[in-house]
């Protein structure tokens, strides 16, 4: 099914369909992640692939047009490149460790420790969160920075239009038809979504979820609001400047935790020193940085969405 989708994506030229198929593809791969025991990843992939990315792409299509032209040059060269690459990979797989074998080096070396010790060392049941936030906490900080970089990049490319100076020019609004049913529905759903986001944020220690997923869900609520009520109302609710400040604040919260642990005598991002008991320290640390991740991710997603949409709404 996955393959079918992927291959069709190659052929279909109506870009809206391509993007929607991509959403389906993402959902499917998220399903596969579920089957492969990666609940957190499935969560994220669904949020990002099927959710945010797709919405972003759709928003882009509004400004860029929806039909792809037939390719002008022959597909032989790319085909050859792809074939060679694929062949190299398949050749390489021939003596790879077999799929799913518990004796693989992957499972016996580093990961072993995470599984055996992390509940004691970190004190939370979700090992993915422990590894994410503590053992490889620095990677996660990098991830937050990457997101932040994307925000900086998008802003420097597009900028977010604040409210229109002159309400007379709200031509976009006049054309678009209001959906009263949807607006009511959105108003019903949004509080629920926000609560759910908070739940995912703070439940991340025990089940799948955490700052990143929560951030995306939070952003999803705002995106829904923007979609049903329009850009101007959304920016009135959440001024762009505030969003940007929060994004930076989230990064600083994360980085600041590291600095604090450094000041308290540990290494950077060593949460052991945050409290008298190392396990408590880990707990506090993870809580704070997940919060930082959540804030940054949600605000960045919102900001990027607003930026893309504000271009789409601009009358040509």
């Amino acid at each position: 099914m996955l393959c079918m989708t992927a291959l069709v994506v190659v052929y279909v030229r109506h870009l809206f369909s391509v993007v929607m198929l991509f959403g389906i593809y993402s959902l499917l791969s998220a399903l596969i992640f579920v089957v492969l025991d990666a609940a957190d990843v499935a969560f994220t992939e669904a949020a990002v692939g099927a959710g945010v990315s797709t919405v972003f792409m759709l928003a882009t299509l509004v400004s860029t047009g929806r039909q792809e032209k037939a390719p002008a040059h022959s597909p032989l060269l790319p085909l050859a490149v792809v074939t060679v690459t694929g062949a190299a990979l398949i050749w390489g797989t021939l003596d790879m460790p077999h799929f799913g074998d518990p004796g693989n080096p992957v499972h016996v070396h580093v990961a072993d420790r995470y599984i055996q010790e992390s509940p004691d060392e970190i004190g939370i049941p979700n090992m993915v969160t422990s590894v994410l936030a503590s053992y490889r906490g620095y990677d996660t900080m990098g991830e937050v920075i990457v997101i932040f970089t994307a925000l900086v990049g998008v802003l420097s490319l597009l900028g977010v239009r604040e409210r229109r100076e002159n309400p007379v020019h709200r031509t976009g609004e006049r054309h678009s038809r209001p959906y009263p049913v949807l607006q009511v529905m959105a108003l019903l759903l949004i509080p629920f979504i926000l609560v759910f986001a908070l739940y995912v944020q703070f439940h991340g220690d025990f089940g799948p979820g955490g700052g990143f997923q929560a951030g995306v869900i939070f952003a999803a609520a705002i995106i829904l609001y923007t979609l049903t009520f329009g850009l101007d109302d959304a920016t009135a609710l959440l001024p762009v400047k505030l969003i940007c400040m929060l994004a930076a604040a989230g990064v600083l919260l994360y980085g600041g935790t590291g600095v604090v642990s450094m000041l308290l005598g540990g290494n950077y991002l060593d949460y052991d020193v945050l409290a008298h008991d190392p396990v408590h320290g880990q707990h506090y640390g993870i809580l704070v940085i997940e919060l930082g991740v959540g804030i940054t991710v949600s605000t960045v997603m919102i900001a990027i969405f607003l930026a893309l949409v504000s271009r789409a709404e601009r009358p040509r």
């Binding site: 959403g23 949020a47 099927a50 959710g51 997923q213 999803a220 995106i223 829904l224 049903t228």
Partner: peptide, 11 residues
Amino acid sequence: FYALINFIGVI
């Protein structure tokens, strides 16, 4: 979460 995403996606 999927249910939410699905809805938002369609909208």
